[in-house]
Computed example of a mutant assay.
Amino acid sequence: MTNTSPGYTNGHRHSTIRRIASAVAGRWPTFLGIALAASTLFDEDGGPGGAFIVTVAALSYLTVAVLDRPRAVWLVVIALSAIGTAADMAGIGYWLVLGPIAVLATLVGLVRGQLRRPGLFLLQAPQMLAVSVVALTAEYGGLEFAGYLVAAALIGHAVWDVAHWRANKVVARSLAEFCFVLDALLGLGIIILLLLA
Rank of each mutant, 00 (worst) to 15 (best):
G49T: 12
A65M: 03
P6G: 08
I17V: 04
N168W: 11
F42V: 07
A153C: 05
W95E: 05
G93K: 00
W160Q: 08
F180E: 01
Y8Q: 15
D183W: 00
E177R: 05
W74R: 14
F52R: 02
T30K: 04
I155C: 04
G26M: 03
R112V: 10
A86M: 07
L154G: 14
W165Q: 08
A167E: 06
G47W: 11
F178L: 12
G147P: 02
Y61Q: 06
R117V: 07
T137M: 08
S22I: 14
T106S: 08
L120N: 01
I17N: 10
L193Q: 08
D45I: 02
I20W: 02
V64Q: 05
T2Q: 15
V134L: 10
H12F: 10
F121Q: 13
G26V: 14
I192K: 09
L196K: 15
R112E: 10
A158Y: 15
W160Y: 10
F180W: 01
W95P: 12
A38V: 10
F178M: 14
L67G: 04
I78C: 14
Y8H: 13
A58F: 03
W95R: 05
L122M: 10
N168P: 06
L41K: 00
G119L: 11
A153P: 15
H164S: 01
G156R: 01
I17T: 04
Y8S: 04
T85H: 14
D88E: 13
V131W: 00
L196C: 09
L59W: 10
H12E: 12
T4F: 13
G93A: 06
T40E: 13
T4V: 13
T63A: 00
T63N: 03
V170L: 02
V171M: 04
L149P: 07
A138F: 13
I53H: 03
N3R: 06
D43N: 05
L129T: 12
G7C: 06
N3I: 15
E177L: 07
A152I: 15
S81R: 08
A25Q: 00
A37E: 00
F52N: 03
L32Y: 11
S15W: 08
A58K: 04
T2V: 11
L175S: 09
L149Y: 05
L36C: 00
D43I: 08
R27I: 11
P70G: 02
A152R: 03
A152N: 15
A38P: 08
G26C: 02
D183I: 03
G47N: 11
R166S: 13
V66H: 02
H14L: 06
A37Q: 01
G11A: 02
R112I: 05
T55F: 03
A135W: 09
A135P: 02
V76R: 01
N3G: 11
F52E: 02
S60A: 01
G84Y: 00
I191K: 06
L195T: 15
S60T: 04
V64H: 10
G91M: 12
L96H: 09
V64A: 07
L120P: 01
L196G: 11
R27E: 13
V133R: 10
L149Q: 04
A176K: 03
V76C: 01
L195G: 13
L59H: 14
E44I: 12
D161W: 03
A130M: 05
W28R: 13
V150D: 12
N168V: 09
I53Q: 09
P29G: 02
A86P: 10
